[in-house]
Design a protein around this nucleic acid. Sequence first.
DNA 1: GCTTGACTTGGAGTACGCTCCAGGTTTTAT
DNA 2: ATAAAACCTGGAGCGTACTCCAAGTCAAGC
Lengths: 114, 114
Amino acid sequence: MKIGELAKRSGLGAHTLRYYERIGLLPYAARGQSGNRDYDESILGWIEFLGRLKTTEMPIRTMLRYAELRAVGEPTRNERRDLLETHREHVRTRIAELQTCLTILDAKIAGYAD
Amino acid sequence: MKIGELAKRSGLGAHTLRYYERIGLLPYAARGQSGNRDYDESILGWIEFLGRLKTTEMPIRTMLRYAELRAVGEPTRNERRDLLETHREHVRTRIAELQTCLTILDAKIAGYAD
DNA sequence: GCTTGACTTGGAGTACGCTCCAGGTTTTAT
DNA sequence: ATAAAACCTGGAGCGTACTCCAAGTCAAGC
């Protein structure tokens, strides 16, 4: 699969895919004899997971840390789990915060009732 | 109250307060004879509300729109209510999205179980 | 009275995460 | 065979939201 198709299937732009590779968020892609990137289907799962991390506001630096640990493999298992557990706490806190604000917003809107 | 005290009490930096005034998010503050800003307590409620909007990811442009409508007063009542209702939908959507990701994260972490 | 700290302004600089450009090569469709 | 579309690289530029700097004025404590 070439970069254009991966862009379509992943929802990211080709520019973004190259950028992610450059910074190390995506593994260096195999190039064909022409020099064009040739992706395997399996990259899609990783990109989707990165998207979840991004949606939940994980900064790129932290994703990068996770990506590096993942590249090392088994010995980093516990560290990866810890990283995700810490992140899960951020997400839980964020949801609670948004819910509090939602309640306040409800009250504010009620004050605008006709 | 001078800007340093407002900074402490609001949790924003003095730089940020000046920046907010410059772009129109805070009303132009009265200056004493020395030229120093002299704030009224009442500004704290507005800053707190702006904080809620920020926490819920409202972009500054939109806060600015709300601030402008508010400055006009009564005739913009419905437009302000609409703006907040639209924003409330964003917040609800965002909470749902985070909850979905949280479930996926739980599953991922479960996969790291010893 | 004088030093230290807080305040003023206009404008420059920063961090993050992309997003695009230039100039060139390769692939694909006709 | 050729033209259009897609790809490559290194590096520049952009949008958002601050954050800080320089140079100067003002205020408060000793």
